[in-house]
C-alpha cells in the first residue's frame, strides 16, 4: 500500500505517494526522475548514491524512503544555483581535473559538500574520512582530494 510522505528536497517541499519498500534512491531516480544520483552497487559499498540528509552524507540506496518523512534532503541537483552557477565544490572538481568518467562524481561531491558545510577548512584526514566510502576507479583520488582542499583554501 502506498503512503503519502512529505519531505524537503533541495529546499523545496515535496509530497509523494511512496511504496514502503522503496529506497530513497529508487524514488529519486525512478519516481522523481532525478538521475543525477547514481547507483553503483546497491549495497552501500561504493557511495555513488550519496545524498545529504539533515546535513549528513548517507547512501541513498540503503535508505528506506519512509524515513525521509519530515527530513531535509539535498542531492547533486540541489547544488547548482538557480542562475546556473556551480557550487564552489562543483567548480573545484571541474577546475582541478577531479572528474574523469564522472559516474562516482555526484556522490563524491555530496560527501565533500557534507564535510565542507560542517568544516569549511578540513584537514587531509577529514577529507579522506569524508570520501572513504566513495569508490572511484578513474582518478586515483589524488585530484579529488586536491579539489576538496582547494575549496577550503587549503592548497
Amino acid at each position: 500500500m502506498k503512503k503519502e510522505i512529505t519531505f524537503t528536497l533541495n529546499n523545496e517541499k515535496i509530497n509523494i505517494e511512496a511504496d514502503p519498500k522503496w529506497t530513497l534512491l529508487y524514488v529519486l531516480r525512478e519516481v522523481l526522475e532525478m538521475t543525477g544520483t547514481k547507483e553503483g552497487c546497491g549495497y552501500g559499498e561504493c557511495g555513488a548514491c550519496t545524498v545529504i540528509i539533515d546535513g549528513q552524507a548517507v547512501n541513498s540506496c540503503l535508505y528506506p524512503v519512509m524515513e525521509a518523512e519530515g527530513r531535509s534532503i539535498v542531492t547533486i541537483e540541489g547544488l547548482m544555483a538557480k542562475n546556473g552557477e556551480l557550487d564552489p565544490i562543483q567548480k573545484a572538481f571541474v577546475d582541478e581535473g577531479a572528474v574523469q568518467c564522472g559516474f562516482c562524481i555526484p556522490g563524491m561531491i555530496m560527501s565533500a559538500k557534507a564535510l565542507l558545510d560542517r568544516k569549511p577548512k578540513p584537514t587531509d584526514e577529514e577529507i579522506k574520512e569524508s570520501i572513504e566510502g566513495n569508490l572511484c576507479r578513474c582518478t586515483g583520488y589524488v585530484k579529488i582530494i586536491d579539489a576538496i582542499k582547494s575549496v577550503g583554501g587549503g592548497r
Binding site: T50, A57, V58, N59, E129, E132, G133
Partner: peptide, 9 residues
C-alpha cells in the same frame, strides 16, 4: 565500521 556514510546511519 564501513564508511562515513554507513557510520552516519
Amino acid at each position: 565500521v564501513g564508511s562515513l556514510q554507513i557510520r552516519n546511519v
